[in-house]
């Protein structure tokens, strides 16, 4: 496997981009930062599949494609299925000796948004994980169905206002908590599961390389700040992601073989979650006096989760 050097940014920048511009993602969208990084951290041939979502509709607008690799889209839910099918065929043809270049390294990657990963494509993803194909699934988690107008998904955190869980006089937005997809995927016994963020480019590139190198089904959940639905200025994408990781709303960690947990980033100064919530329009209503209990609940959930992660890391079980 030809991994590229990620020792420092200068070395990393000598890679040739395989994700082209003039896709139609919003200005400042974190999706393309994550996709570019994945494609830059290896020189191998890539076979990529995308679920329906912002990434798919924006990078394959007929008659254009932004992908300089093999790329396929079939349906909303089945990027995992499509790419594992391609992987099974590749292995079979390798066994039969009908490949043109059997020694060329190939990696199989599936991209999905949070809607197609947490909700619609969940059983397809779970099935692909169980069958044990050699592929990497990357979830671009922007916490709502941004492609269709910002409906709530099961990745939307409590208190966020979305077009189908609106904050108003009788509601503080979504009332249910976010699904813990990383633990669910680790429970499948996957050899490598991680939660990563694009502002920490090095840990993200390392995680991607580890997932691509690891044989078996790997899952990575990445935080993808959405300027349109989180309601912040496009230039602040990295700043918002910084706040998300420093407030531990999105802790960065990996789980190896379903049990060995490593925390990959410990903020020097852990900031209060108010700073993260206050920077985004979708949490604006939480700062009214009657909704204060929601912020307190979010903060206590974060503290409990961080405590759990640290204890699990120490316990090495």
């Amino acid at each position: 496997m030809a991994i590229t050097s990620i020792k420092n940014l200068k070395e990393f920048s000598t890679n040739n981009d395989r994700f082209e511009g003039a896709h139609l993602l919003c200005p400042g969208c974190a999706h393309s930062m994550i996709v570019r990084e994945l494609m830059n951290c290896t020189d191998d041939n890539l076979v990529i599949s995308s679920n329906t979502g912002c990434l798919e509709v924006s990078t394959a607008v007929y008659p254009y494609t932004s992908w300089d690799t093999s790329w396929i889209h079939i349906g909303f839910e089945n990027a995992a299925t499509a790419v594992t099918g391609a992987e099974a065929m590749y292995k079979a043809r390798k066994r039969k000796g009908t490949l043109k270049d059997p020694d060329a390294p190939v990696k199989f990657v599936a991209f999905g948004g949070d809607g197609s990963t947490y909700d619609i494509g969940f059983q397809w993803l779970s099935g692909a994980m169980e069958r044990g194909h050699d592929f990497t699934y990357i979830c671009l988690d922007n916490e709502n169905y941004a492609n269709t107008g910002g409906q709530r998904s099961s990745a939307t955190p409590i208190g966020a206002t979305t077009s189908t869980a609106q904050a108003g006089t009788h509601s503080y937005g979504k009332k249910e908590k976010k699904k813990d997809i990383v633990s669910i995927m680790a429970a499948h016994g996957s050899p490598y599961v991680a939660q990563l963020a694009p502002n920490k480019w090095k840990s993200m590139a390392k995680g991607f390389q580890k997932a691509l190198e690891t044989e078996g089904p790997c899952f990575i959940n990445t935080v993808s700040a959405c300027t349109t639905e989180w309601k912040f200025d496009p230039k602040d994408t990295i700043h918002i992601t910084d706040l998300a990781t420093d407030s531990l709303m999105f802790p960065i960690y990996e789980i190896i073989d379903g049990h060995e947990l490593n925390i990959l980033y410990r903020p020097k100064n852990i900031i209060k979650v108010e700073d993260y919530l206050g920077a985004q329009g979708r949490y604006k209503h939480l700062f009214k006096p009657e909704n204060k209990h929601v912020i307190e609940q979010i903060q206590s959930d974060i503290d409990k989760k961080w405590d759990m992660l640290q204890r699990r890391e120490e316990a090495r079980i």
Binding site: L9, F12, S13, D17, F19, E20, G21, A22, H23, L25, P27, G28, C29, A30, H31, S32, M33, R36, E37, P198, W201, T237, I238
Partner: peptide, 9 residues
């Protein structure tokens, strides 16, 4: 820094 975080290549 600008290279790694540019969303539009």
């Amino acid at each position: 820094n600008c290279w790694v975080w540019c969303p539009d290549t």
